[in-house]
């Protein structure tokens, strides 16, 4: 038996709610996007219900811990295959053992969540450094990204504080999602990359200066491309100005 939900975090939590109250153990809890329907399997469609979702969130918060809720959210955003199963098992164990769940590192159900979490956290930290804004005509700073995980909502608050006096857009090209900020409000919206961007007049000057800096700061006797790639994996180079 599989549960099918709308792909949102609320939808996923609703599915957890239903599983508990119907006393069922779904094999998988899958989003309805890119779903391959099979004739022989029983799929149950879960209608997203925000009050059910928030009841699940609250009870994870209170009966397990706020950190656990964060772990669950991060793992959900990893979008890794089978993460739906891992989260379900983790929550089940959590309701049994309570707030000390994250000390059960010798248990695979906990260890797996911790490992996925570490990956997501690492990408968040990397992205905070590797995002590059381009100044567009009309004084908007625009940054395209293609992260492995769906972390745009987790990195946006950092830039809201940092660039509080600046209009900016962070655009996840892979997921057609964007966070927009106009010095007052920050919103998450779907955005397809089918528009042309026009750079401001001074933008290319600063890009050249940055490339110059990047070149001249390296010590020729110590060139080490392997080390460079280890810290800054190749897949993130696409939107870097300097690479």
């Amino acid at each position: 038996m599989k549960y099918i939900y709308d792909g949102s975090f609320e939808g996923y939590l609703t599915a957890i709610y239903e599983a508990y109250y119907r006393r069922e153990t779904p094999e998988r809890i899958l989003p309805d996007t890119n779903l391959q329907e099979s004739l022989f399997e029983e799929n149950i469609r879960i209608e997203t219900n925000s009050s059910k979702a928030s009841r699940v969130a609250n009870s994870i918060n209170e009966k397990i811990s706020p950190t656990s809720l964060e772990n669950v959210y991060y793992t959900f955003l990893s979008e890794l295959d089978e993460s739906d199963v891992w989260i379900f098992q983790y929550i089940k164990l959590g309701f049994k053992v309570g707030k000390n769940i994250d000390s059960y590192l010798s248990d695979d159900r906990v260890l797996k969540i911790m490992k996925i979490n570490r990956k997501v956290t690492r990408e968040i930290h990397r992205m905070l450094g590797l995002i590059r804004f381009r100044q567009l005509e009309g004084n908007i700073f625009y940054a395209p990204i293609e992260p492995d995980f769906n972390i745009i909502t987790l990195i946006a608050p950092h830039f809201q504080k940092r660039f509080a006096d600046q209009n900016w857009v962070i655009h996840d090209i892979k997921r057609n999602l964007a966070v927009l900020f106009d010095c007052i409000n920050m919103v998450l919206a779907p955005l397809t990359p089918d528009f042309a961007i026009e750079l401001s007049k001074k933008e290319t000057d600063y890009q050249h200066l940055w490339i110059q800096y990047f070149k001249s700061i390296a010590i020729k006797n110590r060139i080490n491309p392997k080390l460079q790639k280890q810290f800054m994996p190749h897949r993130y180079w696409k939107y870097l100005i300097e690479k």
Binding site: L128, R162, A164, F214, A218, I223, F231
Partner: peptide, 20 residues
Amino acid sequence: GGLGNNQSSGICHSWSDDGR
């Protein structure tokens, strides 16, 4: 209300060709 906000852990923004 100005520009900038520090992260106490520090952030690396790039790695030059010598890996620093």
